[in-house]
């Protein structure tokens, strides 16, 4: 299980899990894509785009990372297909992101996510794994 919806008075909240921090940031990206759209088409090769994001601490980096990915959809009409973290340090990450243009006959919008917020944001180590809680504005 990479992520789960949480029962929160907020509009749309999730908890994401990862065995390492890199895993956590990758899974959070995957969760965002999964929440945004369904893809009814077949996979096909896409080029990598390098994205670098930084923050004040892990929670800030998480929000900034999701902000950047969400902007690809809200600002560029792009659907993120994969995000691979190539480097992660305190508190900067660089990732190779594959995305493709949004096509209304191929992609189905599942949730109208408008922003990744700081509301009750958590990035923490929970036992052997890492966990983050993110509330999206929808």
């Amino acid at each position: 299980m990479k992520y789960k919806m949480i029962d929160h008075t907020a509009d749309l909240g999730i908890e994401v899990f990862g065995s390492t921090l890199i895993d956590l940031f990758e899974n959070a990206a995957w969760a965002l894509s999964d929440l945004l759209t369904d893809d009814t088409g077949n996979p096909h090769p896409l080029p990598d785009t390098s994205i670098t994001v930084s923050g004040q601490d892990w929670p800030d980096l998480m929000v900034n990372w999701l902000r950047e990915l969400l902007y690809l959809f809200t600002g560029k009409d792009m659907i993120v297909k994969s995000a691979k973290i190539v480097s992660l340090s305190e508190y900067t990450l660089t990732a190779n992101v594959k995305y493709e243009p949004f096509l209304s006959y191929r992609h189905i919008i599942k949730n109208d996510i408008k922003a990744a917020t700081y509301h009750q944001i958590i990035v923490e180590q929970a036992g052997p794994e890492w966990k983050t809680r993110i509330i999206f504005d929808v």
């Binding site: 004040q56 929670p59 800030d60 929000v63 900034n64 902000r67 902007y71 809200t74 600002g75 408008k114 922003a115 917020t117 700081y118 509301h119 944001i121």
Partner: peptide, 29 residues
């Protein structure tokens, strides 16, 4: 989307610079 982006851009920027004000905010939002 324009308004959302303006809000989010300044939220990120001000969250980063909040220490300049010299007091702790109880919630980053």
């Amino acid at each position: 989307g324009l308004g959302y982006q303006v809000c989010d851009d300044f939220l990120a920027h001000m969250a980063k610079n909040i220490k300049k004000i010299g007091f702790e905010i109880p919630d980053r939002q």
